[in-house]
């Protein structure tokens, strides 16, 4: 297990790369869902004030 995490001495490059990529994958899902939630909230508000 230690050997796996050591990445034959390249741990300081391999793990931050993975963290960056996986972080961006998760963040983009969150950002997209938040954009929809905000747009829905605005559209709903508009609907309530106009009807």
């Amino acid at each position: 297990m230690d050997e796996f995490f050591a990445m034959s001495g390249y741990a300081e490059y391999v793990w931050p790369s993975l963290a960056l990529a996986v972080g961006a994958l998760l963040l983009n899902v969150w950002l997209a869902r938040r954009a929809v939630a905000l747009a829905e909230r605005d559209a709903r508000r508009r609907l309530e004030t106009t009807s």
Binding site: A32, R33, A35, V36, A39, A43, L47
Partner: peptide
């Protein structure tokens, strides 16, 4: 596939923002 999914979700937000006066948005909400 990931790009397809995230782009489709973002597209939904774009459409809601642009079409907020359209009748289909009312029905959807």
């Amino acid at each position: 596939l990931y790009f397809g999914a995230v782009m489709l979700v973002r597209l939904r937000a774009e459409l809601l923002r642009r079409e907020r006066n359209a009748s289909w948005v009312r029905e959807v909400l």
